[in-house]
């Protein structure tokens, strides 16, 4: 599989380029913009001397390209930061230090990843289950009442913003009926049961919307596959409808759906911010909102790169999944 190795290498090179471009964009946005970063970091009541100190410490006096160069150097070779008393080494890959807390950005992000990860993984499993199941069902029972009903439900589902459905679910299930506890995040390692119950509602809110999209996707993919020539071949060779749908149509129809879902799962690391805000889950998205408010540039860049990394990774995974599922696709 020489072509496959080449394909992977090209993918990785492309991904690195995209991430570098991302970091440039974020740096540019923050530096071109007006406003005294040192003043904001230091706070309203800082004296000019204190602000100057912060300014020096953060290296804000350096030209933009030098600051960016340090940042890139940190990622590949690590770098040193002067703290009040001595030198702190930040080993590669180093995304820098928070302006506010001097905490290393990588530590900060690694602390938040399990939170957002928990949210994404649970929602992902649920939406695939509900979405693909519904899609297959409505393709199979096409033309019937079931299909019409499912069509309407999925249409409504795709039309609902997550914060609307989330709010309604909280009101109905937690507040009025009191069937579920109010959402909260408890680390899995602390208490798996509380982790599960605390995240159930956020999972559902995310999954309901995504699964509506996936139901539609699966359905049209199924219908398309069922109209393909090879399905006709197996029909002409005496296979039962069950075997045709189960073995031949399902595989061809679901493979692209799974691949696309990998893509969406990656994107969700960035877009989970809404859900996190709504349910008060201290994930990576909330961290970003907080850091943007305080102009904590290293953290912002770090988070953007991390979420960007997941998008790029998911893109590659989707391509590979799709290509392995369907060998007709030329990897290029």
């Amino acid at each position: 599989m020489n072509g496959f190795t080449g394909f992977l290498l090209r993918r990785i090179a492309g991904a690195v380029l995209v991430l570098l471009a991302l970091s440039v964009v974020v740096y540019a946005v923050f530096y071109v913009a007006p406003g005294n970063v040192a003043q904001i970091v230091c706070g309203e009541r800082c004296s000019p001397q204190q602000v100057a100190l912060v300014h020096d410490k953060l290296g804000l006096g350096d030209p933009l390209y030098l600051q960016y160069g340090h940042f890139i150097q940190g990622i590949f070779a690590g770098r040193d930061f002067s703290s009040g008393t001595g030198v702190v080494h930040c080993s590669a890959p180093c995304l820098g230090q928070s302006y506010r807390t001097d905490e290393q950005v990588t530590d900060l992000i690694f602390g938040k990843l399990p939170v957002t990860g928990s949210l994404v993984i649970g929602a992902f499993a649920l939406w695939l289950l509900i979405g693909v199941g519904t899609g297959v069902l409505s393709a199979w029972k096409r033309g019937g009442v079931v299909e019409r009903l499912l069509t309407w439900l999925t249409l409504a589902g795709t039309s609902t913003p997550v914060f609307v459905i989330g709010l309604l679910l909280i009101i109905v299930l937690c507040s009025t009926l009191q069937w579920l506890p109010f959402p909260q995040y408890v680390p899995f390692t602390d208490n798996p049961e509380q982790w599960f119950w605390g995240l159930l509602l956020p999972w559902f809110s995310l999954a309901l919307i995504e699964s509506a999209k996936y139901a539609r996707l699966t359905r049209s993919s199924m219908l398309e596959t069922l109209a393909e020539d090879h399905v006709r071949t197996f029909r002409a060779y005496g296979l039962t409808e069950r075997a045709i749908v189960g073995r031949h149509a399902l595989r061809g129809a679901v493979a692209p759906v799974i691949a696309l879902s990998a893509l969406d799962a990656g994107t969700m690391f960035g877009s989970a911010v809404l859900t996190e805000t709504l349910f008060g889950i201290p994930g990576i998205g909330r961290q970003l909102v907080e850091s943007v408010r305080t102009v904590d540039l290293p953290v912002v860049v770090g988070v953007v790169l991390t979420t960007g990394f997941f998008v790029v990774l998911a893109n590659a995974v989707a391509d590979v999944l799709y290509a392995t599922a369907d060998r007709r696709v030329v990897l290029s």
Binding site: E228, H230, T233, A236, H248, A255
Partner: peptide, 20 residues
Amino acid sequence: LRGGLAAMVFQDPLSSLDPY
């Protein structure tokens, strides 16, 4: 009957077989 007693060969052999 289909495939057992009478079998059919189609025009486009690529799309007539399951790619997977």
